[in-house]
Write a protein that binds this DNA or RNA. Structure first.
Lengths: 198, 198, 198, 198
DNA sequence: AATGAATGAGATTTCATTCAT
DNA sequence: AATGAATGAAATCTCATTCAT
């Protein structure tokens, strides 16, 4: 049954790392082949080309974030706790593998246009969390789209700040502070007293 | 000293727009020449090359932000008012010409490494504002680097959200809300009662 | 001797069709494998490679034409009848499977150099028919090489005209007309009164 | 005003020759660049790519044939004379530059689909000549499409025969013989007595 | 000052063929 | 006998930059 495909993961991992380190356009197919210990042509068995590879990586991981959020939503936590868990989960994820986060941030300007609201969309999920919290009276009526962006902005910029050395250490240690800020911004009542696991 | 260099401006403007629309590497010298009504060779009269052009645009506008902040700092406003004016100024600037903001966001990953702390650096300036507010007791002791990033994150993600259609209308209308959030996050006391100009 | 090699036929047929439809170089081994329901590697069990496949197909069918002509020659028909039977046979063959004719026309420029005069060579056979008809006094002395080409030209171009939609219907219906033209061109006396079988 | 384009003709000529000598797919851009004394990139200033170059060459010369025929048609010769002049003109043209003829024959299978009946189309022009000769009573009623193909077939195969060494010498010396054949095939009455210039 | 043809170096991509399974 | 992942060598094409005009 032919050789088993051994190299696909190696290629995708090498690509992910190189894209973050040198930029997508700064990375050539040859670079990827070299780092993954494969010849250039091998890439084309698994992806139509470089664009396709970038796209595949983006959607794979972008939708992975949606899955992460989706599974947290399944727990029916109250809003405060959900946000706390969410921030913690994201930062823990980041600390385990910062490349994925950095990659998403790097390429989103090119690819976010192609994201569908009805697919696996982490931004849309967070927005729905906000909407239902507002409907439940857990947070006041507000421009939930805007607030969603503010929360995302704080989380993402923390990652960016870490990338450029302005924010130190594992991000997980900032989870509580940033979750607090998210709740504050959302107007989520007595957030300071919320019971924090950990 | 003779007539002003009209071509130079046309080239830089065309480049700025194209970079935002198609990405830096997706834009060729030919594209830029075409849109600015100049031939390829002529571009080299004003810039050493494409890299130089990108760099020049980035630093010109990045430092422009620093100048904006710097001149606000000269007024010796109290912290609350300074932040409010700052957010308002940035969003007004964005509404006048969103391309500049989008361009900065687009290329910062490539070029931020080259930014010096001691040069005209808007992030550094905001950080100093935070530091001195903390020294003055206007805000509590905190991880000011982190808070700086959170504030930047909220402002930048609002721009991104606008770019992708999640945040509507001129951003200026959100100034007060987002300034409030910045002050909240910074722990700037009774921010709600701050006197708002306008 | 065991079961017949079904795959080999499937491969050759798929190749023949694809070569005609997309050109030889426009057809990849993968294309052939796909259409014949075989994998790429399997093709190499039956042929040394793509070149070998093209060559094999060409000679198989080109020599097939020679066999067709050869068997007609065995009947010792008079010249007029031989030509009529020949044209009829060729067009009947075409109508049964136009791909073969089209394929020969397509690749002859590449491979005709390799054809040997002393092998199974339909052009050479027709030339010999002309030569012996001239020797017998069935046709006048003439540049038989040239006349041979003229006859071939009429037959082949009819096929080409059919391929591009200028000549309609099954070619067999034009057999008599074109045989007449061949005889005329060869100066074969009272060709119009020749007895036509059918 | 920039360098004058010196190399365009050299590129097209080199391409024409190489295509005939080694086949279109057997000729690489590098081959063309080498023979025309230019770097590979230069080709792309004048043509979008190899396909575009082949297409341009084909239509340029194919339409050139139409112009040749068109200008002969302007003389309002009687049918017999027109055909004689036509064959003579074509073969003279061939003898001056056999590459063009060979090239057309080589690539027509790929490109004839794209030829339009209402454009500059030599086949269509010859067909119209036949139609109007039939309307004038210069030739009998017949399947003019088919006869057109037969005449083309004789002319083209003569060229092919020359290419493969079966037909000797300058083709012009065969003009009269082949024009006679064309007239015979078309049923153009007392063709033998037609006055031949020369 | 300007032009745009040409360069030159490299990028992506294709694909016949091989070979571990 | 068959598979199809991987190779390796080329091919096409792109494009920032140079330079004759």
């Amino acid at each position: 049954m032919g050789r088993p495909p051994m190299k696909r993961d190696a290629i995708e991992r090498a690509a992910l790392e190189l894209f973050v380190e040198k930029g997508v356009d700064g990375t050539s197919i040859r670079d990827i082949a070299e780092r993954s210990g494969v010849t250039e042509g091998a890439l084309y068995r698994h992806h139509k080309g470089k664009d396709d590879l970038v796209r595949a990586l983006f959607f794979e991981h972008y939708e992975g974030f949606a899955d992460l959020i989706g599974s947290l939503m399944g727990n029916n936590y109250p809003f405060n706790q959900l946000i706390r868990e969410l921030v913690e989960t994201l930062f823990t994820f980041h600390d385990k593998d910062p490349y994925i986060f950095d990659f998403i941030i790097l390429v989103r300007h090119k690819l976010l246009d192609e994201v569908r609201k009805d697919g696996k969309n982490p931004v849309e999920l967070l927005y729905r969390i906000m909407e239902s919290a507002a409907a439940n009276g857990e947070i006041p009526e507000q421009d939930t789209q805007l607030t969603t962006q503010l929360m995302i902005g704080m989380v993402m910029q923390t990652v960016v700040g870490h990338h450029f050395g302005r924010v130190k250490g594992p991000l997980r240690q900032h989870s509580q502070r940033i979750a607090d800020c998210c709740l504050m911004v959302a107007g989520a009542g007595d957030f300071a007293n919320a019971e924090v696991e950990e």
